[in-house]
Every structure is written in C-alpha cells, then in structure tokens.
Design a binder for these strands. Structure first.
Length: 517
RNA sequence: GGCGCUAUCAUCUAAUGGUUAGGAUAAGUGGUUUUCAUCCACUAAAUCGGGGUUCGAUUCCCCGUAGCGCUACCA
C-alpha cells in the first residue's frame, strides 16, 4: 500500500447550529491548510443529524464567514453564480439528513453481523441505571441488557413497540475484550481498553443516526483521508475505529487538535467574551489578522516569524508542528496582529474597509453602490484620514470615535484648550494670531510640510513655546485630548473641509475661551 | 466516580542529555514629542513537585499534583 500516492482529502463537518465559533474556524483552517499544502481537496459536509438543534440559515452564514476569511472548499456546499447555496462534488449529498439510506444500509450490515442490536430500554430505566452506578461510584455505562435478548424476546419487544408506535434504538456492540489503539498524528498512540467502552447508540428512535455512525459512514464514502477535529473527540475515536472494523473498512488517519481555552483555561466559551468569528469581524478585526492569530493557536513554524499570509501558511503548515497542549485565546495578541496588518495596508484599501465603520458611526452616508463615499467626502480624503490613523488603530471599530472631527466640528469642555504650561490669556492670544496666520496662507500653503514650516517660523518669530501654540491648535481642530499632530490634522481638514473650516474652528475655540475664562 | 489528554515567563511559544533557557504579546523604565500612537533602547518575568536513569536532566522513565476534555437517542 503506497500511502504517498493516496490523495489527501480532508473535510470540515460542522453542525448548522448558528454562529461560527472561533474553534471551528481554527479546525476548518487547519484542515484547509493541510489539504492545500498536500495538493489535496477540502470538503464541506454538514452534520444535521440532531433535528432539535437546527438553525435556519446557519449553512449560508457559515459559508459566508469561511468565504470572507479565505477558507475554501472544493466539494460540498458552495454559493453558485446566483449567490444561492448549492452542492457540488462526486460524493454527495453533503447534508447528512439526505444520506439516511447510507446509514440505514450500514446499520443493517452491522445488525446482520451481530455487531449491533436493537435496544428497547426506556429512558427511565437508563436514568435509573445511571443513578445506581453513580451511587456505587462505578463508571456510568449501558448494562447491555438488550444485547443478550433472545430472538424470541426481540420479536416480542418489536411487536410491543410497533403497537405503541415507538421505534427501538440500535446500539453498537463493543467487543467484550481486547484493546483499541488510536494512532493520532498529533497525540501519538493512545490505547483504550474495550471493556471500558460503552455500547453507543448509533441509530436514534427518530430514524436519524448519531454522530458516531454518520461520521464513519460519510468519511468512508467521501473517501476522506485525514480527519482533523478537536481534541474533545479523542474519547469517542476508539468507538469509531471499531465501527470501521466491524464494517470491514479502512479507517482514516486522525489528527486531533488541542483545545482553545478561556483565560481561566476552560474550553473557550461565550460566557467569557466573544467567540464567534462574526463578532470579531464586526468589531473590526481584519481577516488576515484573525487567520494569522488563529493559525498560531496550537501551531507555529518553529522560527521567529510571526506574520504569515494565508499563502505562506499553506506553504509552511504541517501537522507535525501542531502541539498537544491547549492554548489560551489572548486578545492582546490578536490586537497586536490586527494593528500589524492595519499598518501594512495601503491607505486606500484601509479607507475602504473603514467605510462601513464610519457609516456605522453615522459620519458617512451609506452608499447604495457600495463604491462611492457618500456625503461629499472624496476617496482621497478618506484615504488621507486612514493614513493618519493607521499607526494608532487597533480595531477598525475605533475609527468613528477617533476621527469624528474629520467629518463634523468638534466639541470639548472646560480647559482642554489650555496647554499644561500655559494659561487662558496666552492661549487666546496664540489662537488669535494663529487665526491671522491662516487667513494669510494660500490654499497651496496648506500641505503638511509647508504648514509645519510656516507655523514653526511663526512660533519662533513670536517667541512662543511650541506647546502653547500647537496644543490649542490641535485641540481646536480635533476637540480631543489625544490625536495626530496639528500640522497633519490641519492639512487634512484643509483637504477635506477647506481652509474656512479651520478658521471657523479657531474662532469657536476663541469663543469657548471667552466663556470658560 | 471512571477513562483519557496536557504541563517552559501572566499569555502564545522556541530549544537542548551540558545554553547566561531564546523570541513575541502584555507590563514597567527611558529617549523622541504639544498630546496620543508609532519608533528606538532597556528592565522584570518560566522549565509543577518527588523519585529514578545518567558524570550531568528542564529534556528520558515512573509516581504524585494540578488543569482540562469525555463520560447523551448533542455534536
């Protein structure tokens, strides 16, 4: 058997239960990276065997998120040219609820070979049993009551259930002795004693299979080569292996990924903050940052390089570099990745991704085409703003607050205009002469460099301190305690709102001083 | 309770049978500066405990301990 010639086929197999958990993103990313790295295919299969947990539109949402961040699928669900959810690939259907015949067939095979049996036990009996076992401090397992039923007893129970219009479940018969060994690509060899394995239900009374049966059947028929999934699946893997064996199938390779943890080291959950990819996108994390950060949760290239594009990840990704211990999700580090990508972005592009956030803040009119900038602000202006904020932005969602003054006149209170080493009189005087200076400046003199030259000269000529002039100018223009420098801001406002706006803001500041002082 | 997995700075992690145990984030200090951010320099910060093997163990083995996961007709 030449393993190398075998095509790599990995799959991401979520349940359509709502938002995309960050852990799911990591799993999907790793299975995608592994497939691409090895020239294989990546399949999207939807596991909807729990009919009680379906969420409308979850598959569309999932696909949209994956598309946004750049995780691709070659088979399974996709959006067609009309943007409609559809399926492609040779191994469909890719929705488990449409594959019931395949599960039924496998179950019949198992039933016939006595690797599975009907179980008629009531939930009350099971509950009782569990309580007893707990009380005796024994492992809680099904006692295999129905496994030992005679064919006569089974027939009688069948009749009884039929009359009551109930369906028995089917359980898998775990071998009574021996061991089952997992050879995990990440965790290595893990041995389980068959005696400790439960006779898992594989067919529910509603006619749907459980995960354990469905996953084996689907991975087999879809010719999956590597199952990449979360560490929480390790304990059920021996059961899956035994089902493969009972069906006479060759099992896939398994690679279990370490968990992503909350700061308190429990499994990452909603309780302790955002966990859905949609949330992170909405709060202004760039997809590149999210992918880069998530890739480093449990994997690293063994070098000092930390910034990786998706293409670089594909090139370098290797299951052998995945580690075994869980990783705490540290949003400080995510912020850092995000700011790195923001800094690297061309300012035009940054302005573009910033638009929705300006609109959200009510500073920019939503543009129906999605292309225009609305409300008379040119793309050049928006890019200039973006460029100014590029070094201080951690999340795109901060942009509204920090750049409000670029769109509307600022508001401020108290003595904010007065520099710590200055006073009201000096500030007013400075602003008054600054006003005169701006009146004299021609439009062509309002570039950042020229402004810096002329204002610095003005300070020297008038024997002012830098601070007693630059601080009030900056506050007059921005209304903020913290902002980019006055030359940058003034030239920006001149560009976007015109020189008159600068004069207006200086006037407003002088009036403000009159009132406060 | 049973079974399993894991264990290096606060966090993500690198490395090695012999090193001043490295990097990054966060933190702190200093420089630049009208403010903030950026940038630069610097500082503090770790091999869970106990046994073994060995000349030598953070690294290999065993035992503890702790954390986590699983223990459904959920996935």
């Amino acid at each position: 058997m030449n393993l190398k010639s075998k095509t790599v086929r990995t799959r991401f197999a979520p349940s359509p239960t709502g938002f995309v958990h960050i852990g799911s993103l990591r799993t999907a990313l790793f299975s995608f990276l592994y497939a691409r790295h090895n020239g294989g295919r990546h399949i999207l299969r939807v596991e909807d065997t729990d009919q009680n947990r379906q969420v409308e539109g979850a598959v569309e949402n999932l696909l949209k998120v994956m598309q946004t961040v750049g995780v691709e699928f070659d088979e399974g669900f996709y959006f067609n040219a009309d943007g409609k959810l559809s399926e492609r690939g040779e191994h469909g259907p890719y929705l488990q609820s449409k594959r019931l015949d395949k599960y039924r067939e496998a179950i019949n095979t198992l039933l016939e070979s006595k690797n599975a049996y009907y179980c008629f036990c009531s939930s009350e009996r099971l509950e009782e049993l569990r309580k007893e076992q707990m009380a005796l401090k024994k492992a809680a397992m099904y006692d295999r009551h129905c496994r030992n039923l005679t064919s006569g007893e089974v027939a009688a129970k069948q009749e009884e259930f039929k009359a009551a219009r109930k369906n028995p479940v089917v359980r898998f018969s775990i071998p009574v002795e021996g061991e089952t060994v997992i050879n995990d690509l990440i965790y290595g060899q893990i041995t389980y004693d068959n005696k400790l394995l439960d006779d898992q239900v594989i067919l529910k009374s509603d006619g749907f299979p459980t995960y354990h049966l469905a996953v084996v059947v689907d991975d087999h028929y879809m010719e999956i080569s590597h199952v990449i999934r979360g560490e929480e699946w390790i304990p059920s893997t021996p059961k899956h292996l035994l089902i493969y064996k009972a069906l006479g199938w060759e099992p896939t390779q398994f690679a279990h990924l370490p968990l992503i943890l909350n700061p308190d080291k429990s499994k990452l959950s909603k309780r302790q903050g955002d966990v859905s990819v949609e949330d992170f996108l909405k709060h202004g994390y760039l997809k590149e940052a999210l992918i880069n950060f998530v890739a480093f949760l449990g994997w690293n290239p063994k070098t000092d390089q930390e910034i990786f594009s998706l293409d670089e990840l594909i090139k370098q990704f290797d299951l052998s570099k995945v580690n075994k211990s869980g990783a705490v999700f540290d949003d400080n580090k995510l912020d850092w990745f995000n700011s790195q990508y923001i800094k690297k972005m061309p300012s035009e592009e940054l302005a573009n991704v910033l638009k929705p956030f300006w609109q959200e803040a009510g500073l920019l009119a939503p543009s129906p085409s999605g292309g225009g900038s609305g409300r008379g602000f040119s793309d050049d202006y928006l890019s200039a703003i973006a460029k100014l904020e590029q070094d201080r932005l951690k999340k795109l969602s901060e942009i509204g607050e920090s750049t409000k003054y670029c769109f509307v006149a600022p508001e401020y209170e108290g003595n904010l205009l007065i520099w710590k080493k200055s006073d009201a009189a000096k500030t007013k005087e400075a602003l008054l002469s600054l006003h005169d200076l701006f009146v004299q400046l021609a439009d062509g003199d309002l570039t950042q460099d020229k402004l810096e030259t002329s204002i610095k000269k003005f300070i020297v000529d008038n024997n002012y301190d830098n601070g007693s002039v630059l601080w009030p100018l900056r506050v007059a223009l921005t209304g903020q305690e913290k902002s980019p420098g006055p030359f940058e801001v003034a030239s920006l406002i001149a560009l976007g709102l015109g020189k008159q706006e600068i004069l207006n803001r200086i006037d407003t500041a002088i009036e403000h001083l009159n009132v406060v002082a």
